[in-house]
Amino acid sequence: NITNLCPFDEVFNATRFASVYAWNRKRISNCVADYSVLYNLAPFFTFKCYGVSPTKLNDLCFTNVYADSFVIRGDEVRQIAPGQTGNIADYNYKLPDDFTGCVIAWNSNKLDSKVSGNYNYLYRLFRKSNLKPFERDISTEIYQAGNKPCNGVAGFNCYFPLRSYSFRPTYGVGHQPYRVVVLSFELLHAPATVCGPKKST
């Protein structure tokens, strides 16, 4: 009989979030998941669920729940959905087409922007091929755009693959930082360890 609440607040209220290319994953298990708490945590810009209804979450049980978190800019949030393409979905964080879970995003301009520009958040701009779903690539190998090998040196047709967002508070919403948490629900042929409040007794 599990009584402890799932530590969603640790994920959502973390002081620092990860850069999207090096997104963070927390496995959540053996706890009571009260998803209604999430609705009250922040004024969400996005709370979209796929393959599951957000209002039914509190009635369900899962084997595992994974919470992935990272920062992107406002106009990239739409890429965090099944079947999307674009720089983020292709080279940084890719959801599977049959994704079961929820994408939660909110504006973090007050936390993640600086007047002089916050350069701490990076994204991958160049990659030889698209990522597979939930693949994480943290390599910093020089990207070869031409025929000549780069031998690890940046220059003509040889690019450092990561680029930094420079978040400034005066930017338009599309270029402001957004914190994203992706909850993916895993149903294996194994005992369910993460249940809503109704199912945990």
Rank of each mutant, 00 (worst) to 15 (best):
R27D: 08
D137K: 01
R124V: 04
V71Q: 01
L95S: 00
E135Y: 01
V65S: 05
Y159C: 11
V181T: 01
N1T: 09
S29F: 08
F45L: 14
S53Q: 14
A67I: 09
S108V: 05
Y93Q: 01
V182P: 00
L60Y: 13
N13C: 06
I138D: 12
Q79A: 04
G51F: 00
C158L: 03
A67P: 00
V65P: 00
Y165S: 05
G174R: 12
N109M: 10
N4K: 14
K199V: 15
V71S: 02
V20P: 08
I2D: 12
K48Y: 04
N64W: 10
F99G: 00
Y50C: 01
V194F: 09
F126R: 10
G152M: 07
E76D: 08
Q144E: 11
R78W: 09
V181R: 00
C102P: 00
V11E: 04
V173D: 13
E186S: 09
F185H: 00
G86V: 06
S36V: 03
N13D: 01
K48F: 02
A105S: 13
F62A: 10
S108L: 04
C61A: 09
S166H: 13
R16H: 14
V65I: 15
T193C: 09
I142A: 07
L122E: 15
P82Q: 01
V20L: 02
A81C: 01
F134S: 07
A192N: 12
F185W: 07
F47T: 11
S113K: 06
V32A: 07
S29H: 12
V173T: 13
H189W: 07
V37P: 09
Y143F: 13
P82S: 01
C61Y: 07
T15S: 12
Y39P: 09
N92E: 04
H175R: 13
Y171K: 15
G196S: 11
C6Y: 02
T85M: 07
D137S: 02
N109R: 08
S164L: 07
V153S: 15
E10P: 04
G117M: 07
E76M: 05
V182E: 00
F12A: 04
N58K: 13
R127Y: 02
D34W: 06
F134N: 07
L131E: 05
Y121W: 06
V11Y: 05
R27E: 10
R124T: 03
G174I: 08
Q84D: 02
S200Q: 14
L131N: 02
S108R: 01
L95G: 00
W106V: 04
K128M: 08
A154L: 12
T201P: 14
P7R: 12
V115H: 14
D68F: 02
V32R: 11
R168G: 11
C61E: 10
L41C: 08
E186N: 12
S29W: 06
S184A: 09
N157I: 05
L60A: 10
P96M: 00
N92S: 02
V77W: 02
K114V: 11
Y35C: 06
A33N: 06
W106E: 00
G101K: 00
R163P: 04
F8G: 03
T100G: 00
P149F: 07
F47A: 10
S200I: 12
V20R: 03
N109F: 07
F62V: 12
C6P: 02
T85C: 05
V115P: 15
S129L: 07
L111Q: 15
D34Q: 04
V173E: 14
R78F: 08
L122G: 15
N40D: 12
A18L: 02
K26P: 00
R127F: 03
A81E: 06
F44Q: 15
N13V: 00
A81G: 07
N13H: 08
Y91L: 07
N107W: 05
G101P: 00
I2R: 13
Y66V: 12
V52H: 04
E76H: 08
A192K: 11
C6I: 02
D90F: 03
R25N: 03
K94D: 01
